[in-house]
Amino acid sequence: MWHEAVGAICAVVLAAIGVLHVVWGFSPWPARDRDELASFVFSGPEMPSRTPCLAVGGALLIAAYGVLAVADLCPRVGPNWLYHVGIWVLASALLLRGIAGPLLNRGAGRRFARWNLIAYSPLCAVLGLCALVVAQ
């Protein structure tokens, strides 16, 4: 039961973040412009172009599907080993981003650094732990 509940919550959050990245490929919402958006969500001086935003958004949406599939909440398409490897890669990447996230604050603006410490890095760490629960 925990396996499925944690998987569902993790997948919903990953999908929401993925959709947000796709939106950022086309719009600076909820900011006024791309410079303001970058000051909150990116450690660099300006927001990445459409292609990286869409790539990250697509990867997060695929990860959400993978979590649902590993949690047996939707059918799997393709070999089982791919899901096994995928969930461990996802968990590792999210945990690494969560733990090493403060290193991204070097040279970053104040807004990003603050949000990274209080929201982005902890969220990545929690999602990584959730992916580990689903992987078990």
Rank of each mutant, 00 (worst) to 15 (best):
R50M: 00
A93C: 09
S43I: 07
A69Q: 04
H84L: 11
F42K: 05
C53H: 12
G66P: 04
I62H: 04
A71Y: 09
A59L: 13
C74L: 11
A64D: 03
A69C: 11
P79Q: 03
Y65P: 03
P75H: 05
L104V: 02
A69R: 02
V85S: 13
Y83G: 14
A55D: 05
G86D: 13
L104I: 01
C53A: 10
F42H: 14
A71R: 00
L61M: 09
P48D: 01
P48F: 00
S92P: 05
M47D: 03
V67P: 00
V67D: 06
T51L: 08
V89H: 10
V77R: 06
V77Y: 10
L103R: 13
N105E: 06
A59T: 09
L68K: 04
V41L: 14
A93T: 11
L104C: 02
V70D: 03
P102F: 02
V67I: 08
V89T: 11
V70M: 09
A55G: 11
V41K: 10
P48V: 11
G86C: 07
L90G: 09
W81T: 14
G44T: 07
L60P: 09
R76D: 01
V70A: 03
P79Y: 04
C74Y: 06
V85L: 15
P102E: 02
A100H: 04
G44E: 00
I87Y: 06
R50F: 01
A100Q: 06
R50Y: 03
L68I: 12
V89A: 04
A64Q: 06
P79N: 00
A59R: 14
L96W: 12
A63Y: 14
G98D: 12
A55W: 04
I87W: 11
G78Q: 08
D72F: 03
A59G: 08
A59E: 05
G101V: 05
L96A: 10
L90Q: 12
G98H: 12
R76T: 11
A100I: 07
V41H: 07
W88K: 15
P79K: 02
G101Q: 01
Y65Q: 05
I99L: 12
V56D: 04
P48C: 11
S92R: 14
Y65G: 04
L95M: 12
S92K: 03
G86T: 12
A64C: 00
P45K: 15
R50Q: 00
L90H: 09
F42L: 05
A93G: 07
V67R: 05
P75Y: 02
A71D: 14
G44H: 02
I62G: 07
Y65T: 11
V77I: 14
A69V: 08
F40L: 08
M47H: 06
C53N: 07
G86E: 12
S43A: 15
L61W: 05
S92C: 13
V67L: 00
V70N: 03
I87C: 08
L104R: 01
T51D: 03
P48T: 07
A69E: 08
D72N: 01
G78C: 09
I99N: 09
L68T: 13
L90Y: 09
T51W: 04
P45A: 12
V67A: 00
V41Y: 15
L61F: 05
S92Y: 14
